[in-house]
Design a protein around this nucleic acid. Structure first.
Lengths: 151, 151
DNA sequence: CGACATTAAATGTAGGTACATATATTTGCA
DNA sequence: TGCAAATATATGTACCTACATTTAATGTCG
């Protein structure tokens, strides 16, 4: 559906304004689709993302600081997301022996099994970006990088 | 900064995976910048967006249903965002006389003044999309629309 | 007319984001 | 050594999202 129809706004002030709204809207659309796909596995999107980082580290542990570094959302509260994963027995938390300020977080066998099930279900096919050709994906990456170059 | 460095992940499995992450990350980056710009006016981003919709309707009222229809985030809770704006005296809520189930929501003079101040401060220059040429904006809009065509 | 579905908004709850502050541990240096 | 600064995480608060449920008003149709 065209962005004009999605938010019932027939005219945009400019191509810039339209692109801005389109970008936010499309990202939200993608995240909602993903979140819906994970829900039947009892995971939220941030929980899934952290679990995947932990699998990447496995069998080594990760610290909260490492999770934050790798997360898309730097300001989110990794500590509390780990709380939920711990309640579900998908990760363990132990004080790091080498540095007792830090906490070693590890994915459990149950966590690994769950991720395998999610992989098998092909949830990442929900991407929507598979609509784009390789060349278009490169174009998109270039444009997005350029937007953030305003920093 | 390149997306690889932003999230400390040196290699992406594919251009598709990279574009996906880039899209989510860039949208979040934009929203955080915007939110920061509004903060000194005491508004959150959703509050600002609703206030702007109300200005667009002014002097006609809007209903909650109309707000939801025009919001980027359809599942957000317009009713509670209006609560906060009402507390700040930026909008009024009155039962719609023609249909007593509905509620007429109107922006107040104080609300209009605040939006004028925000306009004057040039907050929308924070966009980041101003980095792109007109042709690039059209390209971006096309690519984003194509992603959502997966529906 | 009256029961029942529909519609409009509000409310409840779980979880997430943003940001400030607190607590515990380690490090650095006078 | 001892004490301040830095580091690692946890906690508090306000607000938001997602989604289910509730409450009230209106429509509809036998």
């Amino acid at each position: 559906m065209r962005i004009e129809d999605e938010i019932k706004q027939p005219i945009f002030r400019s191509e810039l304004q339209k692109a801005h709204i389109n970008l936010i809207f499309t990202a939200g659309w993608l995240q909602l689709r993903q979140a819906t796909a994970f829900k039947c596995f009892g995971l939220t999107l941030p929980q899934f993302n952290i679990l995947r980082i932990l699998r990447g580290q496995h069998p080594l542990p990760a610290t909260v600081a490492l999770l934050i570094e790798r997360m898309l959302d730097k300001t989110s509260n990794a500590s509390r997301i780990v709380d939920r994963l711990e309640e579900k027995k998908l990760v363990t938390r132990t004080v790091c022996p080498a540095n007792r300020r830090a906490v070693d977080i590890r994915i459990t066998p149950a966590g690994l099994t769950l991720l395998e099930q999610i992989d098998a279900a092909g949830v990442d096919q929900v991407s929507g970006l598979s609509q784009l050709e390789e060349e278009e994906l490169r174009q998109l990456n270039h444009l997005l990088d350029k937007i953030r170059s305003a920093d």
